[in-house]
């Protein structure tokens, strides 16, 4: 009867992120010297898709009321690994891709095992594992370099039928293959339930540990897909500390913009994807308006600050002051 209202309430964050993205992208293309062409869309989507993968990874963990500060480092590590392995004949490339994705899954599983079975706080544990992953990345690529199977790279970063950016199609495929089954499975519901109220979920016999573990492991996998795409775009591997950190930070911004609650249990990866695309577009607005690129870090920081402060509006709905203290 009033099903659509519930649906609307549930999807409010996602729809808001979608709306922000559409408005920002419209402003962006309207002011771009080349206008709304396939080329502009392709470049924008290639940049946005990278962050979208990492933001999806962050979403999975944030839904369980945790946080993964190592996503950016897994992204960097898999980028370095891919620059060694994803090359050669078709078969070798395929094995390389599988190895890279497996590494990401393993990194995520290690995070999950430490946080869930080791009972450590996700913040500290993932900062520490992030240092380890970055160290390994630096071992693999002390200096930027390496190469990648360029046929595959060009196919995945080019355009399908001359119009549709292939990277967007890949993103869509990953959503269909990873996110949709996960969010509808028992494990996915368990991850949501654990983030919403762990005690209640435990009392109802929900497999919270397995659900959370799956969320952390899949987050590693998604970050690895991001790392793989970074290699496809740049043709090289680069263990850059600043870039890994920036992706971690931006993934949190994208998740917040995408309407995913940092307290867990609320939001979807779809919202985070639009959050990521919106965040990237806002960051690039500076270029079309001919600002000095020096201002970009500050601009992105301020957007992040505003985005996280928006959550404070919920305070106006608090009737009992004790609810300030969760």
């Amino acid at each position: 009867m009033k099903d659509w209202r519930y649906w609307l309430a549930e999807q409010r964050g996602t729809l808001l992120a979608f709306a922000i993205f559409i408005v920002m992208f419209a402003i962006y293309t309207a002011n771009h010297p080349a206008g709304f062409t396939a080329n502009v869309v392709q470049t924008a989507s290639n940049k946005g898709v990278l962050l979208a993968f990492v933001a999806m990874a962050q979403t999975l963990v944030v839904i369980t009321a945790g946080i993964d500060l190592s996503v950016g480092m897994i992204f960097t590590l898999t980028n370095c690994l891919a620059s060694w392995l994803v090359i050669g004949t078709g078969l070798e490339t395929a094995f390389g891709v599988i190895a890279v994705l497996g590494t990401g899954l393993l990194c995520g599983a290690i995070n999950g095992a430490i946080v869930i079975y080791g009972r450590l706080q996700p913040i500290v544990a993932t900062i520490a594992t992030g240092a380890v992953y970055f160290g390994i990345a630096l071992l693999l690529r002390p200096f930027p370099g390496g190469s990648v199977n360029e046929d595959l790279a060009d196919a995945l970063t080019g355009r399908l039928f001359g119009v549709v950016p292939a990277s967007l199609v890949a993103l869509f495929a990953v959503v269909l293959i990873v996110w949709v089954p996960f969010s509808r499975s028992v494990l996915g519901r368990a991850a949501y339930a654990a983030g919403s109220s762990e005690t209640a979920a435990y009392m109802s016999g929900v497999p919270i540990r397995r659900g959370k573990f799956a969320a952390y492991a899949l987050a590693g996998l998604l970050a690895a897909i991001g790392g793989l795409f970074l290699t496809f775009f740049t043709y090289t591997g680069d263990a850059a500390y600043a870039s890994g950190n920036a992706y971690t930070l931006f993934s949190i911004a994208a998740v917040v913009l995408g309407g995913v609650s940092l307290f867990g249990g609320k939001g979807s990866a779809i919202g985070a994807i639009f959050g990521a695309l919106a965040f990237r577009t806002i960051g690039d607005l500076l270029f079309v308006f001919d600002f000095d690129p020096l201002w970009q870090p500050l601009f992105q920081g301020v957007i992040l600050l505003i985005a996280v402060s928006l959550g404070a509006f919920a305070l106006f709905r608090v009737r009992n002051r004790l609810e300030w203290f969760l």
Binding site: A131, V132, I136, L139
Partner: peptide
């Protein structure tokens, strides 16, 4: 690289 790993 080794320092980061040992550290973590």
């Amino acid at each position: 690289a080794g320092r980061q790993i040992v550290y973590g």
